[in-house]
Structures are given as C-alpha cells and as structure tokens.
C-alpha cells in the first residue's frame, strides 16, 4: 500500500519538478493584483465612495513581496516554509479571485455598488469598525460557548442515562422523540418571553439545538458497546460506576464526537437566528444591523468573520477529537 503510494507520488515529482516555485508565482500574482488595484482608476458610481484603494494595493503588494521572498528562499525556511509551499497554489488562486472581484466591482462596476462591495470596502470596515466587529465576535463566542457547553454536557449526561438505565430510557425517550426533531428556532417566540432575558433565552435555544444530536449519538454509542467489554470488567471486579465511566463512555466516545460535531453545526444556526431576532449583540446582530443601514460591505465583512469563527471552532473540536481518539486507526482529517 505505502509502496504503491510512494511510486505514485514519486513519478510526477521526479519528472516534472517546476523550475519556479509555485510560491514565487503566487507572489508575482499578488504583485500583479496590487498593480491592478493601484494602477486602474476606480469607477465611482456616485452612490458610495470607494476609499482605501491605496491601502488595499499596499496590502496586496506586501503579501506578494513576502510570498515572492519565501518562494526564492525555498527550503531555507524549514517546516513553516514547507507548509507555506503546500498552500502556494491556493495563494495564487486567491490573488486571481481577488483581482477579478476588484475588477468587477471597483474598476469596471459590472457588479453594482453598493450591493456588491469591492475588496477595499471590506478592508475599510476592518480598519474603521474593528472595535464594534470585535465586540460582536466576542459576544457571539460567549453566547455560543455557554449554550453549546451546557447543551453538550446535558446531552452527554442524558445520552448516558438513557443508554444505561431502563427507567431513564422509559421516561426520557418519548420526550426526546416528541421534542427533539422540532427545530430549536421554533421555540424562539416562546423562549423570548418565557426567559428573563433574550440572552438567557438564546443560551437555552443553543443548548437545546446542541443537546439533541449529542444525546441521540451518545445514546447510540452506549447502546452499541460490545457486551463482552462489560463481562470482562465485571469478572475483574468492576463496580457499576467503573462500567459506566471507564468502559461505556470511552467505548462510546467516537459516537459522542459525531454528536458534538453535529451539535456544533446546529448551534451555529441557532446562534445567528437568535442574534438577528432578539439578542442586541453578536455577529448575527451586526449582520442585520448592517443590512438595516444598507452597509453591505459591513455585512460581507461580518460574514467573513463568522465563517472564520465557525471554521475555527470546528477545527478546534476536530483537534480535540484527534487527541482523545488517537487510538483509532483512521480518522477523517479536518
């Protein structure tokens, strides 16, 4: 297996090793994009001013120069250099896409302003409105953390309970079947007047959205544990507590992590809706606020921050799983 993989990889490398590193090429592309941003005049349609064009050009030029330098230095950069080289084609693609975006919006106005903000519009938001955007991010992360952690903890506990104790299963299972499939956002109107604050209502909703998949998958994980594992532990003198904590839970962990992953996705959806409709802070609020003021650049900027946040949190969860489940043979790499 590894031998075939090696020969498969070795052939194109040996035959067609590029004379110029892709990193240097992408650096040149970024410099080209900078030249485009700087050299071609902006077409102002009169509705929205285009500012920060020089800053964008400088940023592109700076990045281009750095990539070019890294490309020329080649192997002398060690491990970070290797990671950078792998990302080389992506840097190139982003440079081209950014230049196209710049061309279609700021330079040619093919895509009409203000609905389609030019790249420098986003840059403007990050440079001028970073305080508010940062605060919104902080509020979102805080709300999400409370809701998600409470939901995940309760979900794991509920899942273990119904997987382990018949009595718990008898009482909780029907409730779960009835309420679980209901989207958490359906509770929104009720939650906002039933809870003392829209913030606590949102924590509840996020916890609910997280808790359902976590419960179901924890439960199925516990139910699927090889019965011999219990017999082994029992003959070795294990107490019931030991059977739950040291046998059932570790054996169910792969399932539990699938639940945590699904719960995280569900929690994002509820977070944004809750912030758009009730909570007066956070990225969701920022989004709807920006839309209300027709500040489309702010909207895109917030969307980008949100994408980075969600992706980072998922990455964090996968890292945690890779650590905890390092005993598994093959894991999907995120």
């Amino acid at each position: 297996m590894s031998a075939t993989a090696e020969t498969l990889y070795a052939r194109p490398r040996a035959a067609g090793r590029p004379a110029v590193s892709p990193l240097a090429v992408s650096g040149l592309l970024w410099l080209g994009a900078a030249a485009l941003t700087h050299g071609v005049p902006d077409r102002n349609t009169g509705i929205t001013d285009i500012a920060y064009t020089p800053q964008l050009a400088a940023l592109q030029a700076g990045l281009g120069g750095a990539l070019l330098a890294a490309g020329l230095l080649g192997g002398r950069l060690g491990r970070p250099g290797a990671a950078l080289r792998r990302a080389g084609p992506w840097f190139a693609l982003i440079a081209v896409l950014l230049a196209a975006w710049e061309l279609l919006t700021a330079k040619l106005a093919v895509l009409p302003l203000p609905f389609f903000a030019p790249p420098q519009g986003l840059l403007e938001v990050y440079l001028d409105d970073w305080a508010r955007l940062g605060l919104s991010l902080w509020h979102s992360v805080k709300l999400l953390a409370w809701g998600y952690l409470i939901g995940a903890a309760l979900g794991v506990l509920t899942g273990i309970s119904i997987g382990w104790w018949q009595q718990a299963s008898y009482w909780i299972h029907p409730v779960l079947r009835f309420i679980g499939p209901l989207p958490a956002t359906a509770w929104l109107p009720v939650a906002f007047f039933a809870f003392p604050s829209s913030w606590s209502a949102s924590v509840f909703l996020i916890a609910l959205a997280t808790g359902f998949p976590v419960t179901i998958l924890t439960w199925s994980g516990i139910a699927g544990v090889n019965k011999d594992y219990y017999d082994i532990a029992r003959t070795l003198g294990a107490s019931e507590r030991f059977l739950v904590l040291k046998v059932a839970v570790p054996a169910a962990l792969p399932h539990i992590f699938v639940g945590l992953f699904m719960g995280l996705g569900a929690s994002f959806a509820v977070l944004v809706v809750a912030e758009m409709l009730g909570v007066k802070a956070g990225l969701g609020w920022y989004l709807s606020w920006a839309q209300g003021w027709a500040a489309y650049a702010n909207m895109y900027a917030a969307l980008l921050v949100m994408a980075v946040m969600c992706s980072s949190l998922i990455t964090l969860l996968f890292r945690l799983r890779d650590r905890v489940l390092s005993w598994q043979k093959e894991l999907v790499r995120w």
């Binding site: 090889n226 011999d228 594992y229 082994i232 046998v247 570790p250 054996a251 962990l253 489940l325 005993w327 598994q328």
Partner: peptide, 8 residues
C-alpha cells in the same frame, strides 16, 4: 476473542 479495550 482477546476483547481488549481498543482505547487503552
């Protein structure tokens, strides 16, 4: 089957 715990 040895039924070892795979996570240990």
């Amino acid at each position: 089957d040895p039924t070892l715990y795979p996570w240990r």
